[in-house]
Amino acid sequence: MIEDDRSKDMCPICKTDRYLSPNMVFLINPECYHKICESCVDRIFSLGPAPCPYPKCGKILRKNKFKRQVFDDLVIEREIDIRKRVNSIYNKTEEDFESLESFNSYLEDVENIVFNLTNNVDVEQTTKDLNKYEEEHKIEILEKNMRESQKNADFVKYQESIAQLKHEKMRIQQQMELEDLEYQRQQKQVLLDKLASNPGGSSEELIAQSNSNILKRSSLRKRQFQQLTNQLDQRIQTSNPFKRGRSSESDEVGSSTPFTPFKGDRDLNKRYTLLDTGKTDADVSTGTYHDPYVSGLAKNKEFLGAGWRLELVFERALDEAFMGMGCFIDKEKELKAEVKLEGGDGISV
């Protein structure tokens, strides 16, 4: 095993070892798939075609055909090469055929050729057939190639533009965030200056004012950003050749099964409207409901800090009071029994 590993990392021609020169690269030539290190390839083949230096091989190799090995297993490497070559000649796609059946038999033919070539079955005959086919269909193959490359170019363009859009959005947002930070800092400074210049004035008012300024600005900015991104989105929509077909398709699918977030498990028909809750003890005017005890709790900052709200208490009391109104248990039981009889599996409904 160790022997094997070592030979894997050593060029059989110049005996350079990967251990000593870790940068070495092995190349192979699809003529014979013998492994030769890069410097040997440079040395032997830079003056033109030469025979393979492996003993008993002697195939004439050219430098420009040498390439890096992708797959560890040379059998696979070879099959991929053959497949590439065959597919460049037999390059039809499904849309070129009238029926699926004819396309499938075409694919089977292609597979047969690949199999023959990789497993050395009737190689001569197969290559001859392959060359003949190429000769006969030269123009077709070229045309097909042109069409495919056009398609690919379109797709690449589309992907690029999407990436650009995303990048653009990100840039705008980042810039806005930076500007916002700067603005907040400035506001703070202004506020400090103001506070310093009139020591007698009410500081809380000033703070509140500056806070509301900041808030106003940030909501404005949000809207601005939304607008910008919408514009960008639209631009990409109009320029994109692929999206159109797809979006209409997904619309159709969406409309056939409407989405229901609650699946009916929601009480939209509340049988009450919540009145204003009186904020202070004195505020017991008409149109409000005031409960001195619960309102007392609403002044407890510990309650408020934990997310507790006065309205929640009232809502719950009212919900519970009205819960189950309009439900007729006998009727539901009958319904349930019917379903059970039909279904017979007894899983509750």
Binding site: E302, F303, G305, A306, G307, W308, R309, L312
Partner: peptide
């Protein structure tokens, strides 16, 4: 976080 702070009157949140 309100539980981490030891709140005793938390809600559905």
């Amino acid at each position: 976080p309100e539980l981490l702070f030891g709140a005793k009157h938390y809600v559905e949140a």
